[in-house]
Simulated scan of single mutants.
Amino acid sequence: LDPFDVASAVFNSCGTVAANVNFSIDLNDTGYPNSDYDQCGVNGSWCATESGDWPGWCLTLDDNNSDNVFTGTLENVSAGDYEFIVFCSGAADNYSGWGVQLGPVVSSECDFDSSDEFGNYGFTVIDSDVDVSYCAGSCDETCSGGGDSGGNNSNYTVTFDLDGLDDCGFVSVTGTFDNWSGWGANADTDFDAEMQDGDYEFIILCVDTNIDSWWNDIWGSSTIYYAPEGSECDFISDDENYNYGFTVSGDDMLVQYCAGSCDQTCEEQCVADGDATQDLNVNVSDIILVVNHIIGSSTLSDSAFCSSDMNGDGTINITDIIAIVNLIIGL
């Protein structure tokens, strides 16, 4: 084995390497930070939870000389391989510590693990300090550098328009675009998220806000809506996950689904409540309208027909009138 360079390595009390990792992240030409996302840094595997999730705010970087190159040092890092992504967070994402993510394109030369679905940078600590420099969103060291960037610095707005979630106290869309943080796009962000070109998967969290401190465990406080297994909207149909997905390709985009289905919108549910007039009241006016339909002097609309078909047999007749009368008199 090659000897350690004791002049540049630090050892902890157990005799293992404890190096410093010095980040220099160039954000020129990226549009960040800005008034919506005013704090930037790096999130990575060194601060992963026991479940493997990366929390936000792993390391906040500073721009002390106002050149839009953000720097910071991760201290006492043990030997090993580490992945990370650049983030900018702010009021637009309720300071989640994720907000906008700037990473390499999946399978590009600086995608540390090209075998997985995530576009993450990475570095290896061996026996000395490590310097990490990137133009955020590319493989270049600085944003003024030439050559093949391996990425695209442009970010596009993806807007989620989801139906069938009226009973949720809070709704959040999370996926590969926010490293499954649980807070990717939600009501606080107007269901918008900034992303670079690439393929993304996601699911929908329907949060029960009656649970105390639900925000501390948004996953555990939620009913999760997946794409139907093996369906046309199961983005990777041959894996064990039933995730929705989409591809960003050089432009803003709108993603629309009825939660839990492949339809863009949910069909309205038929409620046989006797309200033929659709005025939110059931009274003699509804009976008159139904009678006129039966005798042929008028025709009920689809929604009025649905409300009037009290026994759900697909026809309107005297049986339905009797049911509406009983509803009015309280029987």
Rank of each mutant, 00 (worst) to 15 (best):
A185H: 06
D113V: 13
F123A: 06
C110E: 00
D197S: 10
V158E: 05
G122T: 11
G198N: 10
D161C: 00
T157R: 09
D197H: 10
N120K: 14
S154L: 13
L162S: 04
L165G: 00
M195T: 14
F202Q: 02
T159K: 15
D148P: 03
V173A: 06
D116R: 08
G122I: 11
V125D: 08
D163Q: 08
V125Q: 07
A185C: 07
D190R: 11
Y200F: 15
V173T: 10
E117Y: 05
D113Y: 13
G220V: 11
I211S: 01
D192W: 06
C139W: 05
T209E: 12
W214L: 08
G137M: 07
D129S: 13
D148M: 06
G175A: 10
E201H: 01
M195Y: 03
C206R: 04
G145A: 15
T124E: 13
D190M: 13
Q196P: 00
N186I: 08
D208A: 06
N153H: 08
F118V: 14
G198M: 12
T176P: 01
V171W: 05
S128E: 14
G122V: 11
T209G: 02
C135M: 03
Y134N: 03
S213W: 10
G169S: 06
D127P: 00
V130A: 09
V171M: 07
F160W: 13
D166G: 13
E117S: 13
F123E: 03
D178Y: 04
F191G: 06
G119D: 09
G198E: 12
D129T: 05
W219V: 09
Y200N: 10
Q196N: 12
F177E: 03
G145T: 04
D113K: 05
G151C: 08
Q196C: 08
N152L: 09
V171I: 15
A193R: 10
T174D: 05
T209C: 13
F177T: 09
I203V: 14
V207T: 15
V158H: 06
T189Q: 04
S133A: 14
V171D: 04
D116C: 10
S144R: 01
Y156E: 04
D148A: 12
E109W: 02
Y156P: 03
D163R: 02
W183L: 11
Y134M: 01
G119V: 14
N186G: 12
E109S: 13
Y121S: 04
S172L: 03
Y156C: 09
S128F: 09
F170V: 07
D161A: 08
S149N: 02
E109H: 01
A136I: 11
T176N: 06
W180F: 15
D212S: 15
V173E: 07
